[in-house]
């Protein structure tokens, strides 16, 4: 999570949607593709999420290392599934028959479908979460939770987590530099080196995080956090006609996923 993945602006339609509704949307999309793991369905939803990035002017920069890593990782997931799935009609062999040798590593239609399904689901979960964080104002999200009678102590845990994500990201980079300055190379060769790498990374990060937690809790207590069971809000989330319309669409999506899973929509499931 980088700094630019967080937003407190209210520009696009997605920014203006009710924060709880956006969270519900994230949960519904994730649940939908888990219960109905069709690659076409995942691909359609991924297309809508990428459209969401464009509508809300949130950059999805493929040149960034982290985004590149996600795409490469999803490609690896695809390749792994294709290689590991032997069921289905064989399309071709990766290593064709040569003389009396082979052929080896068959690629089947079922394997390709499974691979697509896995990698698209992975991208969908990650990208939809990134979009949610990018277009959701944590303070307004905390306020919207109060409408569901969720105590503000819990909803603020989320606000604080989002507030500290960029900071921990920066600290992680600093610790990496500090390791290099002491001659410590990240190594995963052998259990003792793995353990040492983990220790040399997590000790400083953990201690730094804990010291910040202490300071933060004093700062919050020192400003009356928890003084009473309710609190007021300078900025409040709102619910309007657009939110209602999106709620209807999301409910329809959830219902469709359930019906598709149960096999009640055979014509539709033949397409997606």
């Amino acid at each position: 999570m980088t700094i630019e993945h967080q937003s407190t602006e209210s520009g696009s339609i997605l920014h203006r949607l009710n924060p709880s509704l956006k969270l519900a949307g994230l949960i519904i999309i994730t649940t939908g593709i888990l219960i109905y793991p069709s690659w076409r369905f995942s691909g359609l939803l991924l297309f809508l999420i990428i459209l969401g990035f464009m509508i809300s002017n949130v950059p999805l920069d493929m040149s960034k290392r982290r985004i590149r890593f996600l795409v490469v990782f999803s490609a690896l997931l695809f390749a792994f599934q294709v290689l590991m799935t032997a069921n289905g009609t064989i399309l071709f062999f990766i290593i064709p028959k040569y003389s009396s040798m082979g052929p080896f590593l068959p690629v089947t239609d079922f394997g390709v479908e499974k691979g697509f399904g896995m990698s698209l689901r992975f991208l969908l979960v990650v990208f939809s979460s990134m979009l949610f964080v990018s277009v959701t104002d944590p303070t307004l999200l905390a306020h919207s939770f109060t409408r569901f009678r969720i105590p503000y102590r819990y909803s603020f845990a989320l606000v604080i987590a989002l507030r500290f994500l960029p900071l921990f990201d920066m600290e992680n980079k600093t610790v990496r530099m500090a390791q290099r300055s002491r001659g410590i190379s990240i190594s995963v060769r052998g259990m003792s080196r793995i353990l040492r790498t983990i220790r040399y990374t997590f000790f400083p990060l953990l201690i730094s995080a804990l010291s910040r937690v202490d300071a933060l809790s004093l700062s919050m207590d020192g400003r009356g956090f928890g003084h009473s069971r309710t609190r007021t809000y300078l900025r409040k989330s709102s619910w309007n006609a657009l939110d209602s319309a999106v709620l209807v669409l999301l409910s329809a999506l959830l219902l469709a996923s359930i019906l598709l899973t149960l096999g009640f929509l055979p014509q539709v499931s033949a397409i997606i």
Partner: peptide, 27 residues
């Protein structure tokens, strides 16, 4: 000492409003 660790919200006006909000001051 460290201002970074004491900030609990993402927007400056939210941060300044944080205390009064906890004491249920009117918006």
């Amino acid at each position: 000492q460290d201002p970074e660790s004491q900030i609990s919200t993402l927007l400056v006006s939210d941060e300044v409003a944080f205390g009064p909000e906890n004491y249920s001051v009117m918006p």
